[in-house]
């Protein structure tokens, strides 16, 4: 039986005295799409960063394909990181590099490809997200939607097996939001990567997720498929998903 792509074992995390997550046990299967929802400030991004290995949980462990991420050697961890991509909430684009160089960065750092091959991959990456015309612009010369697309292209540059998206539709209009989620689904279906998406938009969460997780009150609830999530019996979660004031 194949190992789950990602597993959380009794993961707890605190910032100082404030506990954010308490004993989370969950797993993600290969090629699965997980949507994480929940009220602001409840630890969605923290959970995502723990899953991506950017944050070390205060307690518990994160296993990627059965290996404890933080117990791997430096070289093994770097190798595994090359199989991951992440879109940050505020994009985290390299503002001193232009669009093409942002995508070329991981290719130059990690692969041993020639400049010509890198150039081809940059063009292909920009084409896949529809911003090839902006190749020579700097990130702050682009609109919010274009920056998100660039962030997605950069996250996909190494053709990763695991992709983490932190609020990919934040600050975008509904049409652009939908296009971004369509793009994420489209790219995921081509590669069959395992993806985890944090979002505050319920419609987008139900659109992207094979399963929906709810983060709140220091716990993470697996609500199942979008259909099952809509039928949840928990009144607080149901109210949140429907955008109602909780009872």
């Amino acid at each position: 039986m194949a190992l789950p792509a990602l597993q959380l074992h009794s993961v707890s995390h605190s910032f100082g005295a404030e506990q954010i997550l308490n004993s989370v046990d969950l797993s993600v299967e290969n090629g699965e799409r997980i949507a994480i929802v929940g009220p602001s400030g409840q630890g969605k991004s923290t959970l995502l960063k723990i899953m991506a290995g950017l944050l070390v949980a205060s307690r518990g462990r994160v296993e990627i394909e059965g290996a404890d991420f933080h117990k791997l050697s430096h070289e093994q961890r770097q190798k595994l990181r090359c199989r991951m991509g992440m879109l940050f909430q505020k994009n985290a684009l390299f503002d001193s590099l232009h669009v093409g160089e942002n995508i070329a960065f991981p290719l130059r750092e990690v692969t041993k490809q020639s400049e010509q091959e890198i150039e081809t991959l940059v063009v292909k990456g920009l084409e896949s997200v529809g911003i090839l015309h902006a190749k020579d612009l700097y990130p702050d010369e682009m609109s919010g939607g274009m920056q998100k697309r660039l962030g997605i292209a950069r996250a996909q540059a190494l053709n990763p097996d695991f992709l983490f998206y932190d609020d990919p539709t934040a600050g975008l209009d509904p049409i652009t939001s939908r296009k971004i989620i369509d793009l994420i689904i489209d790219l995921q279906e081509k590669k069959k990567a395992t993806i985890v998406v944090v979002t505050n938009e319920m419609a987008r969460a139900f659109q992207v997720g094979h399963r929906v997780w709810y983060v709140g009150d220091r716990e993470v609830f697996d609500l199942g498929t979008p259909e099952q999530a809509r039928e949840t019996k928990n009144p607080k979660i149901r109210a949140f998903l429907r955008g109602e004031v909780s009872p």
Partner: peptide
């Protein structure tokens, strides 16, 4: 603070080295 250092790490590069 703009998470660019996290992004470097996430792209498989070492921020200390880079």
């Amino acid at each position: 603070v703009t998470e660019q250092i996290d992004a470097i790490r996430c792209l498989g590069a070492d921020p200390l080295q880079e």
